[in-house]
Design a protein around this nucleic acid. Structure first.
Lengths: 197, 197
DNA sequence: CCCGTTGTTGACGGATCGGTCCATAACTCG
DNA sequence: CGAGTTATGGACCGATCCGTCAACAACGGG
C-alpha cells in the first residue's frame, strides 16, 4: 500500500553499531552514521527515531547477543562443565589479547561512557551481566555436581568473582597490557578455583 | 616583566577534570570547561594549548595520583602486608559501591573511550596499571615472607589477578551491580588467595 | 613613566552537531 | 491509471563545536 524500504535493517544496524563501537556515543555523529549506512538522514530518523533510540536499539541487540553466546558456551552436560568454564575464561582472555585495536567490548565501553547519565544503558548492562552471572553459576554448580569443583563453595559468589575477572581482563586489555599478562590472569584465575578436596 | 596570571592553575585543572570525568572527552566542550573554570577561552588555550593537551595533562596527574595512593596504601612492614592487601581490596569494592552516580574511575573511563585512537592515553594507562601491579606484587611478596600467603605462588601473577579483580569490580559497579554483590566479589577474591599451607 | 611582554576577554569563523522538512519516488488498492 | 501512503535524499535550521584573534589590562625594566 506504500513505498517499501530499500535498505536491509539488519545491515544498517550493523554498520551503525560499528561506528558507535569505534567512536563512542558522543563521538559519533548522525551524519557519520548516515554516511556509513548509505541512508539519508530522513530515512534514518524516520526508521529509528533519533540518535538515542538508534543507539539503544543497537545496544540492546548487542547485549542480548553477548549473553546468548556466553550461555551457549557454558551450557551442556555436567561432565564437561569444568572444562567449558576453563575454556571460556581462556578464550575470553585470548580474544581480548587478539583485539590489538583495543576496541574492547561495546557493553563495557558504553557502560563506561554512559551509565552515569543514562539509566537505560545501566539497566541493560546490569541485566546482561546478571544473565552471564547466572550462566556461570549454573555451570559452576554442574561442575560441583560432577565433582570437579569443591561443592562447599558458593556457586553464585564464585560466578561473580569469575565475572569480575573477565571484565577486569577486558579493562586490562584496553589499557594495553601484554598478551601473556592477559593469559596469565586467566590461568591464575583457573588455578585458584576451589577444586574438590 | 609581563602581566601575571590571575588564576590558580591547580584549581583550574581540578574544575576541568571534573567536567571531563563527568561527561567524557568527546562529551565535554571547551566552552563548558571555560564556564566551569571561569576562564575565557583565550586564557584556556594560551595556558594549556588545546583540548587534547589539557586532557592529557589532567589524565597524567590523575594517573600519577591514583598509583601513588595505591602504593602508599600497600607499603609497610611485612607483618601487616596481608592485612593491607585485604583492606585495600575491600576498600576498593566499598568505594565503588559508594559511588552511586556510577561515575567510576577516570582512568578506566578514559581508557575505554580513547585507548583505541589515542596512544598517549593507552601508554599512560598501561604505565599506571604497571605501577599498581608492582605495588601489589611487592605487598604479596611481603605477605609471603611473613608467612601469610603461600610462598610457592608467583607473586607477579597473583598481583595481576588481583588487579583484574579490582578493575573488574569497577566495571561491575558501572553496570549497576548491587553493593553486596560488589562486596561479595571482594570477599571471594580474598578467600581464594593461596594462604600458607 | 613609557615600553615590551604576557594575560584576559569575548566576539568571531568555518565546520559540524542533532534534528526537521519537503519535493520526489515507489508502492498498493480501488 | 489516479489516490493514498510511506520511503528517500538532501537542503536547511539553530545551536554548538574547536580554535583564533584583536583590543585591552597588568606587570617589570629602563
Amino acid at each position: 500500500m506504500a513505498r517499501p524500504r530499500t535498505f536491509d535493517e539488519g545491515a544498517v544496524l550493523d554498520a551503525a553499531r560499528e561506528r558507535f563501537w569505534t567512536s563512542g556515543y558522543a563521538g559519533t555523529s548522525m551524519d557519520a552514521v548516515a554516511a556509513a549506512t548509505g541512508l539519508g538522514k530522513g530515512s534514518l530518523y524516520g526508521a529509528f527515531g533519533g540518535k538515542h533510540e538508534l543507539f539503544l536499539r543497537i545496544f540492546d541487540a548487542y547485549c542480548t547477543d553477548v549473553a546468548d553466546r556466553v550461555i551457549d558456551a557454558l551450557t551442556g552436560p555436567d561432565d564437561g562443565a569444568y572444562d567449558r568454564l576453563c575454556v571460556h575464561i581462556r578464550a575470553a582472555a585470548a580474544g581480548i589479547a587478539a583485539d590489538r585495536s583495543h576496541r574492547g567490548c561495546l557493553l563495557a565501553k558504553s557502560a563506561a561512557e554512559l551509565s552515569e547519565h543514562d539509566p537505560d544503558v545501566t539497566l541493560r548492562a546490569r541485566q546482561t551481566l546478571e544473565r552471564i552471572t547466572s550462566a556461570l553459576a549454573d555451570d559452576i554448580r554442574a561442575a560441583q555436581r560432577h565433582g570437579d569443583l569443591d561443592s562447599s563453595a558458593d556457586a553464585e559468589q564464585l560466578a561473580l568473582l569469575v565475572l569480575a575477572v573477565l571484565r577486569g581482563t577486558e579493562a586490562l586489555g584496553k589499557a594495553g597490557m601484554d598478551d601473556d599478562q592477559l593469559a596469565s590472569v586467566a590461568e591464575t584465575a583457573i588455578a585458584l578455583l576451589p577444586r574438590t578436596e
